[in-house]
């Protein structure tokens, strides 16, 4: 601050230009990040929505004459150790992983918001009891708890969704409760109480709309995490059946061939996991900057 003042007194024009230049550069990387992330997410969504209906894949068909071909024209991503085309299996796997990620993240956010809002809005002993329960559940390592839940069911997509959802609502519950507690002491809640609003109406009309941006952000940030969890469970052999293409099962199946020097069956599913993750995280970052009140008031001005 002192530096800029000195600079300004010395050469007002130069300092002003430097300031503006810096701001413009930041803004341009900001829009670049937004556009790249949005484009990647759009491509991913289109790929998983359009490719499977257009190109049918028999998950169990093998072609041993074409096993472990390196990337080439007929198979852009190469083939795996039983001759299946990796590109197609990667897209199918991404579809399963995204489905699990989105559904589990949404479920976890709904549970977390409900629990957090109940605790925050009711307060008192309900709040203490619920938050002790949250602490108890979160004291168990969540991958372990997830393995425990998934092991109770037959392998499939839905047990994985249930397991990821039931282990990931805790952070959302904490965020939502903290936000509700800060909103609850505002005078406009007093005004609503004085206007005859019931507890339910105060929660639904005044508290929940205030926490929805935070809860939505938590949900978006949860999608990549849930995808990673699906892959981890499948990699451990607990998630999806091994013939079903998912990013986790693909990487797990390719482990043996990696040691023999075939890098492509591991690299491409790994990229398919990392790139959408980074894209979604980038979008969430832009969103987080938007809902920051100071930033939002700047945008309004």
């Amino acid at each position: 601050m002192a530096d800029t003042t000195v600079e300004k007194t010395n050469a007002t024009g130069a300092a002003g230009a430097a300031w503006r230049g810096h701001g413009a550069a930041r803004r341009s990387t900001h829009t670049l990040r937004l556009r790249v992330s949005a484009a990647l997410v759009a491509v991913t969504a289109l790929a998983v929505l359009l490719v499977p209906p257009l190109v049918q894949l028999d998950q169990q068909a093998v072609d041993l004459s074409a096993k472990l071909l390196p990337p080439g024209w007929s198979h852009p991503f190469g083939t795996d150790d039983v001759g299946r085309d990796l590109l197609l299996r990667c897209v199918y796997g991404l579809r399963v992983s995204l489905l699990v990620g989105v559904v589990a993240a949404l479920t976890a956010t709904v549970i977390g918001t409900a629990v957090g809002a109940t605790a925050g809005a009711l307060g008192g002993w309900v709040d203490r009891a619920v938050m002790r329960l949250v602490d108890t559940v979160s004291s168990v390592p969540h991958l372990l708890l997830g393995i425990f839940i998934v092991a109770m069911f037959r392998p499939g997509v839905w047990p994985v969704v249930v397991s990821v959802a039931l282990t990931h609502w805790l952070s959302t519950a904490r965020i939502v409760r903290a936000e509700v507690l800060s909103l609850r002491s505002r005078p406009y809640i007093d005004a609503a109480v004085s206007g005859g609003a019931s507890r339910w109406r105060v929660a639904v009309r005044h508290l929940l709309p205030g926490v929805l941006p935070q809860a939505g952000l938590a949900a978006v940030l949860m999608i990549p995490h849930a995808m990673w969890h699906e892959s981890a469970l499948s990699f451990l052999g607990l998630g999806l059946p091994t013939h079903t293409a998912s990013l986790g099962t693909l990487i797990q199946g390719a482990r043996g061939s990696l040691l023999a020097g075939q890098w492509w069956p591991t690299l491409f599913p790994g990229l398919f996991l990392i790139i959408p993750t980074l894209a979604i995280a980038g979008l969430a970052g832009v969103w987080r900057e938007r809902i920051n009140p100071r930033r939002r008031s700047e945008l309004m001005l």
Binding site: R186, P187, Y188, D190, A191, A192, S194, G195, G196
Partner: peptide
């Protein structure tokens, strides 16, 4: 409760921003 009408000092804080 509704027999009382309350007006607070800071209108910014006593109006739901949404």
């Amino acid at each position: 409760r509704t027999a009382f009408g309350v007006v607070f000092q800071q209108p910014r804080l006593s109006a739901d921003p949404r």
